[in-house]
Amino acid sequence: MSASFSQHEALVYVMVMMSAVDRSMSDDEFARIGGLVRFLPAFDGFDEDRLVHIGRECAAQLAAPEGLDVTLEMVRESLPQRHYETAYALAVEIAAADQRIRTEEIRLLQLLRDRLALDKLTCAAIERGALARFRR
């Protein structure tokens, strides 16, 4: 794995990290990742066929020594600052997809927020929006 990757890859890594943080990737979470990649302007020009390959690369990176810390740093370095909030919003979307937010997911959101130096109020607004979208 190279020291950095594309903006698209960084955003996919964020979603895969969130999905895998509880050691299982639900069908709802994987379907949500695919839907977001197809729908959002941040993924314009992304080859959707690479999604599974990037997911495997992310899993391997996370399994390496200090994998989470290294991966979070690579995401930060690979994204332009204007996409930091986008990355956080994508992580929240994946966490909310199965309508159960677990302790591990909350912790990863905190780590991502801190690594990207995001404002707590902005993050709270992103989280509140996701809760409203997924409410039954």
Rank of each mutant, 00 (worst) to 15 (best):
M1W: 01
L11M: 08
Y88V: 01
R100P: 04
R133V: 03
R115D: 11
L118F: 09
D28Q: 10
A42Q: 05
L118M: 13
P41Q: 04
L108Q: 04
M25Q: 08
E104F: 06
R107T: 14
P80A: 12
R113K: 12
A31P: 01
G55M: 13
A130P: 00
E66D: 15
D44K: 08
V14L: 06
A125I: 04
S2H: 05
E29A: 01
R115G: 12
F39S: 11
M17G: 12
A64S: 11
E9V: 13
R136P: 00
L90N: 05
A3T: 15
L109S: 02
L131T: 02
E29V: 10
S6V: 10
G45I: 14
L108C: 07
D27Q: 06
G35C: 09
Q81H: 15
Q61P: 01
F39Q: 10
Y13R: 13
F134R: 02
S24M: 10
F46E: 01
P80N: 10
S2Q: 09
V52G: 00
R56G: 11
T86K: 05
R115L: 12
A64K: 02
C58F: 11
I101D: 01
V37T: 09
A42R: 03
G55E: 12
I101G: 01
A42V: 02
S2Y: 02
A59R: 04
L62N: 11
G34N: 14
M18Y: 06
Q61C: 05
R135S: 14
A3D: 15
A96K: 08
I106C: 04
S4P: 01
